[in-house]
Amino acid sequence: MAPETKICAQHIDFFYGRTRALKDISLDIYANRVTALIGPSGCGKSTFIRLINRMNDLIPGTRVEGKIIMDGLDINHPRTDVVDLRRRVGMVFQKPNPFPKSIYENMSYGLRINGMKDRNFIEQRVVSALKKAALYDDVKDRLHESALMLSGGQQQRLCIARCLVVEPEVILFDEPCASLDPISTRKIEELILELKKDYTIVIVTHNMQQAARVSDYTAFMYMGELVEYDLTEKIFTVPKERMTEEYLSGKFG
């Protein structure tokens, strides 16, 4: 069964001022699959996924060329509603970034900003998202305590859960385990595998083993270019490009 394409990037170039950070990137991201972006730091993998929910709009002096199509719609089109886009494409950041509010307030934030006032509905969604993120049992007795009291791993799962509440279609993970210990990392990875049943997932990681463990497809990027993109098992066993092979065997990066 061929997977359905969710997002299709076509000839993406991206500029920070005069610097060209991404060079002619074209790749497809499939629905209900995990796509991993790997490569040495500074290769543009984070820049690329931040384009998918237009977080780079926040950085002044940047410019994007080419098209990113999601469900047949150009996300960079001037008439695209960026707020709506970001609701459809959730994001989990490198460092856990819960708001300095209670766990419950963190979770309900996404619904409240949409004008949702029905308490029962909010609570139902919060609980189900926390359960999906495998965090409910850890926090069910202290939903009204500050989110900053949680451990790093729990904070990151809270951020994932917070993103699930608004029911996105795609979730972008930008090195979600970079600041976590191995056990918390393991839990997040299990969670990602669980989530792919319902969501399309893109994960940026510098950890090749992590890419091998969680992803279905892997893209290898280097110096702003997409070197190779294929099924993860193929990339890791029979890479077509020499550069990919060298990177995977630890010759550079």
Partner: peptide, 24 residues
């Protein structure tokens, strides 16, 4: 990161400012 988290959840700038940045 607070601001980014809020915007990534689909809040607009004013919501982000009044509900996340100002309370923080």
């Amino acid at each position: 990161s607070f601001r980014e988290a809020s915007l990534a959840l689909g809040a607009n700038r004013w919501q982000t400012l009044t509900r996340v940045v100002m309370p923080a």
